[in-house]
Write a protein that binds this DNA or RNA. Structure first.
Length: 238
DNA sequence: CGCGTTTGACCTGCGC
DNA sequence: GCGCAGGTCAAACGCG
């Protein structure tokens, strides 16, 4: 069995003692800086793992495309994506699959109570149609990228037939501009932080906030656990 | 008033 | 040519 430890302790315990002498405050500050540093390293590690996993998934998807393009025809009830006999699409949760002709399919888990067909992906979309298709009683929504008038990208969003809380988004085309989120992020950062020192502080604060929110987010922990599991699986198999 | 969504009508491609 | 299904258009509507 491979070493599965990522060196991450998700139970980050903040110190609770409150002793307000200057000496203790200084210690406290040092300790906080140390923790921030650790969290930053953890985050970097998580991002690295995430990137390598994503690369690996893309590679696997490409291999699968080659297999799927073989003359063997699909049977009904066989998954479009991976030709498994599973009728559920839960194994695609959060997956990003690039198909031919710049078509990308993304599976997004949503709140079951949320009936809207909205997938936040950092771009600005304008809905231009909705249609109920024959094979799926839930309506399919049609969106065009509205950020740049010349942008040819379209997307279709429809709930999975098997799992109503799973949104299937099909992107067609390639954006000829940056995502609106990136732009906004860059602009607000520039506006708020003028000196490198401020940026450094922002960096620490951001890392702290991100780490806190991530460790409190059960979805993230679940996804991290899945990622770790697949990494173990990968190490066992390859 | 401007912008985004809704929704019925229309267009297009495909199989028979 | 016809019917069907998916995709798009555009007027009406709602909201801030």
């Amino acid at each position: 069995m491979a070493d599965t430890s990522l060196g991450i302790d998700l139970n980050v315990v903040p110190f609770h003692k409150t002793d307000d002498t200057p000496k203790n405050n200084e210690d406290k500050l040092n300790q906080m800086n140390l923790e921030n540093k650790k969290l930053k390293e953890m985050l970097t590690l998580v991002l690295d793992n995430h990137n390598s996993l994503q690369n690996h998934v893309s590679k696997l998807m490409q291999d699968h495309d080659l297999l799927a393009s073989s003359p063997n025809k699909r049977k009904s009830g066989v998954c479009d994506e991976c030709n498994t006999s599973a009728s559920t699409e839960s194994h695609h949760q959060g997956l990003l699959k690039r198909l031919n002709n710049g078509v990308t399919r993304v599976y997004t888990r949503t709140d079951p109570s949320d009936k809207s067909l909205v997938v936040k992906d950092g771009y600005q979309w304008r809905k231009y149609g909705q249609k109920v298709t024959r094979d799926n009683p839930s309506p399919r929504a049609y969106y065009k990228c509205s950020f740049a008038p010349s942008c040819p990208v379209k997307k279709k969003v429809q709930r999975s037939l098997d799992e109503p809380d799973l949104l299937v988004t099909i992107y067609e085309g390639k954006h000829d501009h940056k995502s609106t989120d990136n732009e906004h992020e860059t602009q607000t950062s520039k506006a708020r932080f003028n000196s490198p020192m401020e940026l450094g502080k922002f960096d620490d604060t951001l890392v702290e906030q991100m780490a806190n929110s991530l460790t409190r987010n059960p979805d993230f922990i679940e996804e991290l656990a899945e990622a770790i599991f697949s990494k173990i699986f990968e190490n066992d198999l390859f």
